[in-house]
Design a protein around this nucleic acid. Structure first.
Length: 273
DNA sequence: GTGACCACCTGGCCGC
DNA sequence: TGCGGCCAGGTGGTCA
């Protein structure tokens, strides 16, 4: 599933391919992807607009048009593909942005979990969904003091807290498992029990894991591929996620799988006590 | 305010 | 072979 490194890979790929194209029309085959505004306003506000830039905040893609931004979340299996308009619409292609040059940007989502919102440029960061996001690990303000302030009174598992995008933005299930492994922290340990040193390790290892994943184009597990079918290579670097029954790369203890707040969680019971 | 739980959604996998 | 049930999981909403 797309997490921050996968979204960043999609952003870079699309930015290189479709900048400065102008929307001629939009075909919507599954309108529930669009959250705000309504379908009619969504299309009328975008048609005729030229794509100026593509940014990212956490796991959200931000398509910057002339005066308006399309904020897209890929959720579990969202993908973008660029195709000629003459190519037939495939199953699971729910929203198609047709450009004036005869090409199209197609949003493909098997599980239909993805979302799209339109916002004027001056309200992108002052309204949801981006307003509520916490800091990314790369943010200069991401310090031990920030995490301590947010987590020191949390009586829930640290894994649950790191998946909370309102606190720690950008990590999903895969990378949280990897960060906690590198930090030698048990995913079920209560956030309130963590030390300053633990918080620092979480920050450092998050940056380390995400940077490496971005470099390798993200992680390809199950069905995820970025736009144009580009697959990531970070899955070859995973230490614990999906490694149930395999030996820990550090101590050879067998990796176990548990559920933390309903999420499949992989960890080494020896390294992460 | 906090934490637990559920809905959304479909393909893949497993057991019968 | 075919069918039913479960699992995967990010986020928002609801409820206690």
């Amino acid at each position: 599933m797309p997490e921050l490194p996968e979204v960043e890979t999609v952003r870079k790929t699309l930015r290189n391919l479709i900048l400065n194209r102008t929307i001629e029309s939009i075909d919507v085959y599954y309108s529930k992807i669009i959250k705000e505004p309504n379908l009619s306003d969504f299309t009328s506000k975008l048609v005729g607009k030229t794509l100026k830039d593509i940014n990212r905040q956490g796991k959200y893609l931000i398509f910057i048009f002339d005066d308006i931004a399309l904020i897209s979340h890929l959720r579990m299996e969202g993908k973008y593909f660029i195709k000629d308009q003459s190519e037939s619409i495939e199953k699971h292609e729910h929203i198609v942005f047709n450009f004036t040059d005869g090409t199209s940007l197609r949003y493909h989502d098997v599980r239909k979990f993805g979302t799209m919102d339109l916002r004027y440029l001056n309200e992108i960061y002052t309204t949801n969904p981006l307003k509520k996001l916490g800091l990314e690990p790369f943010d200069p303000l991401m310090k031990v003091a920030y995490l301590k302030d947010k987590l020191s009174k949390k009586e829930v598992a640290i894994k649950t807290c790191l998946l909370n995008q309102q606190i720690f933005t950008g990590l999903g299930n895969i990378y949280v498992d990897e960060v906690l492994f590198l930090s030698k922290l048990n995913p079920e340990k209560k956030a309130s029990k963590l030390s300053n040193n633990d918080f620092q390790k979480i920050i450092d290892n998050s940056v380390k894991v995400l940077n490496k994943a971005i470099l390798l184009g993200g992680t390809t597990i199950r069905s995820y591929t970025s736009s144009l079918g580009v697959t990531g290579r970070f899955q070859n670097e995973l230490n614990v996620h999906t490694k149930i029954g395999e030996p820990c790369p550090i101590c050879n203890t067998i990796i176990e799988k548990i559920r933390v707040n309903g999420r499949g969680t992989y960890y080494c019971p020896n390294c992460q006590k």
